[in-house]
């Protein structure tokens, strides 16, 4: 499902905007990461995309169609899986009962429901806890159940608001596996998080929101490329002998040392230049001249987190 946001805005009190002027296009079958600090408007945006919140201004188009009537919203929701923030759960229901309840809410026929429930329980490793009340499950298991509920009716658009909250490393790894699987099925995924490492290698596209405004959006690689033009970070690996002179040489060239350590028996430095490759060549020549035995010099690609730090003025996790 292709999703397009045009001038999307929301004001809860008529005075202040929780979100405004968001234009975004999410191609069918892609995974979009929505990034921003708490209060940036991510949840508001996601709820509007999930048709659960009416925009104050702007529209959301699904495969080019803007739903206007309540009936259109209802039929659209059969194609959307939405995990909101807060993650409320019926604690007295077992995972099987919980999934049955939501399957019926989506109008799944009884003959399909049993199979769909079994598949979700298997996918999310919940078979052994299928008859345990949800209130007695661990936080990670509950989160898996909540995500599983969103996939029960095989949606074409999956919207996950902070899905990794409460997941342990294994749960996060499972979530990546599930999202990869979902992507292979051609499902469009919109996922929000303020933990950037979660999204870096998972998303095709990212959109960064700050104070209700869309700061930047596009394919991850393109954004990183676009925003690291003025930032040159290199990793230098040197033989330990003579490496002690490196710091003086680098300081003379006004090169910032971001980190240092030992890697595979070699001294490693991450350095940042304010200028381009020619300057790095000059620095390398000077290092050689001062007896520093550089073994490798490679440019370090920026991470999403670096880009975010660069273009934002807020701190994020």
């Amino acid at each position: 499902m292709r999703v397009e946001l045009h001038g999307l805005g929301k004001s809860y009190d008529g005075a202040r905007w929780a979100l405004r002027g968001v234009d975004l296009s999410i191609p069918s079958g892609s995974i979009l990461g929505l990034i921003g600090p708490n209060g940036a408007g991510k949840s508001t945006a996601l709820r509007m995309v999930a048709t659960l919140l009416e925009p104050t201004e702007g529209t959301v188009a699904f495969d080019g169609v803007v739903p206007t009537s309540p009936d259109a919203h209802q039929s659209l929701r059969r194609r959307i899986g939405f995990l909101g923030d807060g993650n409320p759960l019926y604690k007295h229901l077992t995972p099987r009962e919980y999934l049955r309840f939501f399957g019926q809410c989506f109008g799944l026929p009884e003959r399909e429901l049993g199979g769909a429930i079994a598949e979700i329980l298997t996918t999310f490793s919940l078979e052994s806890k299928a008859e345990t009340p949800a209130g007695e499950l661990s936080k990670g298991m509950r989160q898996r159940l909540l995500i599983g509920r969103c996939l029960l009716h095989r949606p074409e658009l999956l919207i996950l608001d902070e899905p990794a909250d409460g997941l342990d490393p294994r749960g996060r790894s499972d979530l990546r596996r599930v999202l990869d699987d979902v992507r292979r099925r051609g499902v469009t995924v919109v996922i929000s998080s303020h933990i950037l490492r979660e999204l870096d290698d998972l998303c095709d596209q990212v959109a960064i929101l700050q104070r209700g405004r869309l700061v930047v959006a596009g394919p991850v690689a393109e954004i990183i490329e676009r925003h690291e033009v003025a930032r040159f970070v290199y990793e230098l690996r040197m033989l330990p002998q003579g490496a002690e002179h490196a710091a003086d040489v680098l300081a003379r060239h006004r090169v910032l040392v971001e980190s240092s350590g030992m890697v595979e028996g070699l001294a490693a430095l991450n350095v940042q230049l304010q200028q381009d490759e020619a300057k790095m060549a000059e620095v390398l020549a000077d290092l050689f001249a001062h007896g520093v035995k550089v073994v490798t010099c490679s440019r370090v690609r920026s991470r999403l987190e670096d880009v975010y730090d660069r273009i934002s003025d807020d701190h994020v996790n």
Binding site: A50, L52, P70, Q74, S75, R77, R78, I80, F82, L83, G84, G86, P88, L89, Y90, K91, F102, C105, F106, G107, L146, R149
Partner: peptide, 14 residues
Amino acid sequence: HENTLQPVAGTALS
């Protein structure tokens, strides 16, 4: 009280 209607509102039920 438990805000459990929020996910139900996201289903096919009006």
